[in-house]
Simulated scan of single mutants.
Amino acid sequence: MSTYRIAVIGGTGPQGRGLGYRFARHGHTVVLGSRAAEKAVPVAEEVAARLAGVEGAGEVTGAANADACAAADVVLLAVPYDGHDELVATLPLAGKVVVSCVNPLAFDKQGPHGRIIDDGAGSAAESAQRIAPDATVVGAFHHVSAVTLWGDREVIDDEDVLVCGDSADAKAVAIELARSVTGRDGIDAGALRLARQLEPLTAVLISINKRYKVHSGIRISGLSGHA
């Protein structure tokens, strides 16, 4: 398995912290990014302490967002959608694989629902690609619960990571990174525009979680050889 230097933008939030923990647990070097380094450092120390004694674990540090990106091979966007475009525009992303797990959601009296991006012809991942045209953006890790990511299971082997993108090479990176979470390759779910369906699907899982008091995930059946 390849090892990467991964910048997690939004690394102090539950999703970013959980994914950073999973990546570092499986040997990747992780830099948790935040708007201010002094916010990222204690969260990185918390993750590093959790990894104490884990053989082969990667280093975890904290930095300001732009500094976290600077030396990274892969940049994971794990930030709220509000302010997403403005933040992405400030990051040095050229030449990097950018993995977006951003879920543009809204909540009202009826519960969670997906926000409509660009009149239905866009998604957070596509917005990131438009803003950072010299990066290669894929969508992945939208549907894994932050609670499950931070849990004690070695791998979350009853779920799949769905990966969408327009570059086969960039998708291959995210598909491989999925092994750090589920213990097996992610699933190539098609073109980047399918993020328009994958991102709001998270609202369905949140609704299920609330009704059944669980941390639900997605598993794809019928794929031969995908154990």
Rank of each mutant, 00 (worst) to 15 (best):
T3M: 14
Y4V: 08
Y4P: 07
Y4C: 10
R5T: 15
R5C: 09
I6K: 04
I9F: 10
I9Y: 03
G13H: 07
G16Q: 02
R17E: 15
L19Q: 07
G20V: 01
Y21Q: 12
R22C: 03
F23C: 07
F23R: 01
R25K: 15
G27L: 09
H28V: 08
T29D: 12
L32V: 06
G33Y: 04
S34H: 06
R35S: 12
R35Y: 07
A36H: 15
E38Y: 11
E38K: 14
K39P: 06
K39A: 13
K39R: 15
P42K: 05
V43A: 00
V43F: 02
V43W: 06
V47R: 01
V47Y: 03
R50V: 12
L51S: 09
G53Y: 06
E55M: 11
G58S: 06
G58W: 05
E59Q: 14
T61R: 12
A64F: 10
N65I: 03
A66V: 13
A66Y: 10
D67G: 10
A68W: 00
A68Q: 02
A68S: 10
C69D: 00
C69W: 00
A70Q: 14
A70M: 11
D73M: 09
V74M: 03
V75H: 02
V79Y: 03
Y81G: 03
D82Q: 14
D82F: 13
D85W: 10
L87R: 04
V88A: 01
V88I: 07
A94H: 09
V99I: 15
S100W: 02
S100R: 04
C101W: 04
N103R: 01
N103D: 06
L105F: 06
L105C: 05
L105K: 00
D108Q: 12
D108E: 12
G111E: 04
G111D: 08
G114C: 09
R115S: 13
D118S: 14
D119E: 15
G120L: 02
S123I: 04
S123N: 09
A125Y: 02
A128S: 13
A128Q: 05
Q129W: 10
R130D: 11
T136Q: 10
T136H: 07
G139D: 14
G139E: 12
A140P: 05
H143Q: 13
L149F: 04
L149P: 05
L149T: 06
L149H: 00
W150G: 13
W150S: 15
D158Q: 12
E159M: 14
D160F: 01
D160S: 07
D160M: 00
V161E: 00
V161L: 00
V163S: 00
C164S: 13
C164L: 07
G165V: 04
S167M: 08
S167K: 05
A168L: 11
A168M: 10
D169N: 11
A172H: 06
A172T: 05
A172Y: 02
I175G: 03
I175D: 02
A178H: 01
R179I: 00
R179Y: 04
S180L: 03
V181H: 01
T182V: 15
G183H: 02
G183Q: 02
R184K: 15
D185R: 11
A189L: 09
G190M: 04
Q197I: 10
E199R: 00
P200T: 01
P200D: 03
L201P: 06
K213A: 14
K213R: 15
K213P: 07
V214N: 13
H215D: 14
S216H: 11
G217Y: 01
R219I: 09
G222F: 05
G225Q: 03
A227L: 12
